[in-house]
Each structure stands twice: as C-alpha cells, then as structure tokens.
C-alpha cells in the first residue's frame, strides 16, 4: 500500500523565536544558499538529513521539533 506523506517544518517559526534570524544568517550557519532555506520554509524542498540536523543544531532543539513527518 502506498501512503502519501509530507515533511512539515517549523523553520520559519524557529527563526522568529531566534530573535528574527534572517534566512541568510541561517543559510550561512548551515552552509546552504538563502534560496534553499526559502524553499525549505515553503515546503518546496526537503533537505538532506545532514542539513536538517544542522538546522536543528543551530536552533538548539531536537530534530523533531523542527521537522515532522505527516501522513496525509
């Protein structure tokens, strides 16, 4: 059986609570482009595990506080 799913993230919210960190600042800390952060926030791109963990480390929280897996 094929189950549809989507990866939901709270990167925008985490940036807001990190003193409104800019996309560029987060991109520099993670080592990707600003456009990639923007695509992740919009749900247009699912990052690799490495980048996803780096984002969680930047916000000093658990991985599943930022990324969750939702079955549709």
């Amino acid at each position: 059986m094929v189950t549809k799913f989507q990866i939901v993230n709270r990167v925008r919210e985490k940036r807001f609570f990190a003193d409104e960190m800019t996309q560029q600042a987060l991109a520099d800390l993670v080592g990707v482009t600003r456009q990639t952060i923007m695509a992740i926030e919009k749900g247009k791109y699912s990052p690799s595990l490495e980048v996803a963990f780096k984002i969680a480390v930047v916000f000093e929280c658990k991985f599943d506080d930022v990324f969750t897996y939702e079955i549709l």
Binding site: A27, D28, G31, V32, T33, Q35, T36, A39, Y45, P47, S48, E50, V51
Partner: peptide, 12 residues
Amino acid sequence: NKETEIKGDERD
C-alpha cells in the same frame, strides 16, 4: 560574492 552560491549547495 558568496562562495556557497557560486559553487552551489545540495539542492543545486
């Protein structure tokens, strides 16, 4: 002027 932009990241 950003190196990451010119080299490209995992998405690129």
